[in-house]
């Protein structure tokens, strides 16, 4: 348990450092952070080893999806603020501590680029 916490703390620490390095990179700020590619995002979202979003969500073109989470449709209406949508995918336990959705960003399940791609795809639904 302690070992696990330490490892996690280590992983989070590394992510923070990476984030700082990115933030310090010349000419790169939140406004022009690399945006995602929705087509790549669809593949990542539907890949069982990566997003595997259909394990829990009804989504386009997916046969026998799960129903643990709500269907992912009309996302722009539900999330006018794209950053909020990103935050949900990054770490769902911030909004709901009991969430059974995996923290895709925080735990490094997806890379930054993959997460941005997925975000762009989900945003388009």
């Amino acid at each position: 348990m302690i070992a696990l916490k330490t490892t996690l703390a280590g992983a989070v620490g590394t992510a923070l450092i990476a984030a700082c390095v990115l933030a310090l990179a010349p000419g790169l700020n939140a406004a022009d952070a690399p945006t995602g590619n929705p087509e790549a995002g669809k593949e990542i979202a539907n890949d069982r080893k990566l997003g595997n979003c259909m394990a829990c969500h009804v989504m386009p073109d997916i046969e026998s999806p799960g129903n643990i989470g709500p269907p992912l449709i009309g996302m722009q209406a539900r999330y006018p603020d794209k950053e909020k949508l990103r935050a949900q995918i990054w770490d769902a336990t911030v909004a709901n501590p009991d969430s059974s959705m995996p923290p895709f960003g925080k735990h490094g399940i997806l890379t930054e680029q993959q997460l941005n791609d997925v975000l762009e795809y989900i945003w388009s639904l």
């Binding site: 259909m54 026998s64 799960g66 129903n67 643990i68 009991d98 059974s100 995996p102 735990h107 399940i109």
Partner: peptide, 22 residues
Amino acid sequence: RGQLNFSCANCHVQNPGNLLRS
């Protein structure tokens, strides 16, 4: 626990009867 961050309870207490994929 794990990278996917589940407890046993997440699946078998919170979600029995729900579909994890099929």
